[in-house]
Design a protein around this nucleic acid. Structure first.
Lengths: 231, 231
DNA sequence: CCAGAATGCGAGCGACCACTCGTGTTTGTC
DNA sequence: GACAAACACGAGTGGTCGCTCGCATTCTGG
């Protein structure tokens, strides 16, 4: 279903003695440690979003954070763990901030509003956290993050599906699923376009993205409701 | 004294020895060499499309082609050159096969047909050459291929623009350009969806992609048809 | 048929990278 | 203040990768 996932040799996977200790032993962490972790994750976000996951070296992340490589490994067992933790924090923040953004399944809401609101919110989030797009889109991400991405993708599709279903009672479920997949794919492509532009052009692309989604969905909904908000 | 010298040990990056060689002295190549090159490029296409550019090792390409690493470097100065040559050959084939596919600027052609034909042709090409998508889409591609990609992208956008323009005489050029960018972006997203599925599902996605593009463009064209020919 | 060019091989080199380890410093607790 | 644990450092380790080099083999023109 998804693009080529590369789990490549080069992730020198070594079982370390740290892993054994951290099995079920929550390490007593000082405030300084928590600060370092936040600092490292911020640095990682910067480096990841500017070079991608694979090309980002742990030394570069440590340098960006102003610490030594050894310090980095004091808090993360390996490179992948950094990306996973960062991804999880971003996912959590997104869910907290926009958790219910995609689930106003009230069929009274005009489709236009639902689409516009969802697009605006998600674009806003991605604008504020460029690393999120990098982690969830890169073709070079390791297995674990890919799972997270797939989970997020599935959630998105499911939400769109449930958002669509009340509008489309006569359509087979398989068709609705496919339609949802198309919507998400088009949203992602539009997001890329939006993130790559600035200022007025960016806003214009946001409008175009909404147009694409709306016009794609309108004919389906039109069977049931008169197209657009009726005066 | 044999051929290529230069290249001190430790100069792991850029190849400067090619300039002298290929400047005005095309290497006399035997039929066997041409065969090897084709063989290596085919192997590279396989490896690239299955693992991506960065993760693909030159040794893996050589192994896939059934030759030694040294033999590979007999014909290509470095890894990037392999991708560049492969990209150029694919681009050339695409231009030869579908060169004029996107330029039937006959305004009499219904938009629906134009869109459907273009989509079908390009999808067919990408189905037959999976490496093309990998090379032109990967975020991990080196500078030179990125240039190629940008050139192709610009060409695509320009073609779509010129295809659109006769339908939309009243729209500002900037808007048409933006619309073309959106079309190409949506096409790429749809292509990804199509390439990731198979059989009937694949065909269904092709249909959906056409719908997306058509419905996005229809209102623009519709304005014109409704208003009649402009004086 | 035979010089020399083109082709082929594969062990190995240097660079880089993820990650470690011995050692020293700070911090919390008694 | 004493002690241990957490934190910090950075040179070093093993591994992979792009690429090379000396040498063997095959082709081609004269």
């Amino acid at each position: 279903m998804f693009v080529n996932r590369v789990r490549k040799a080069g992730d020198n996977r070594v079982a370390t003695n740290q892993e054994k200790q951290e099995k079920e032993q929550p390490r007593r962490r000082q405030a300084r440690g928590e600060r370092r972790i936040a600092q490292l994750l911020e640095a990682a976000a910067t480096v990841f979003s500017s070079t991608g996951y694979t090309a980002a070296s742990t030394n570069a992340i440590a340098r960006e954070a102003g610490v030594s490589p050894g310090t980095l490994y004091q808090f993360f067992p390996n490179k992948e763990a950094i990306a996973i933790e960062l991804g999880e924090r971003l996912m959590r923040e997104m869910r907290e901030t926009y958790g219910e953004a995609l689930a106003p399944v009230d069929p009274a809401t005009p489709l236009e509003e639902a689409v516009a609101a969802a697009v605006d919110r998600f674009i806003d989030f991605n604008r504020r956290h460029p690393a999120f797009f990098t982690l969830m889109h890169g073709p070079d991400i390791p297995g674990r993050i890919a799972e997270e991405h797939d989970a997020l993708h599935a959630t998105l599709v499911a939400r769109v599906e449930s958002l669509l279903t009340p509008f489309l009672p006569d359509i087979p479920a398989a068709d609705i699923t496919r339609t949802a997949h198309v919507c998400v794919a088009m949203y992602k492509a539009g997001l890329e376009l939006v993130l790559a532009s600035e200022g007025a052009e960016r806003d214009a692309y946001v409008q175009e993205l909404k147009k694409v989604l709306l016009r794609y969905l309108q004919p389906l909904v039109g069977d049931r409701l008169a197209a657009g908000p009726t005066p």
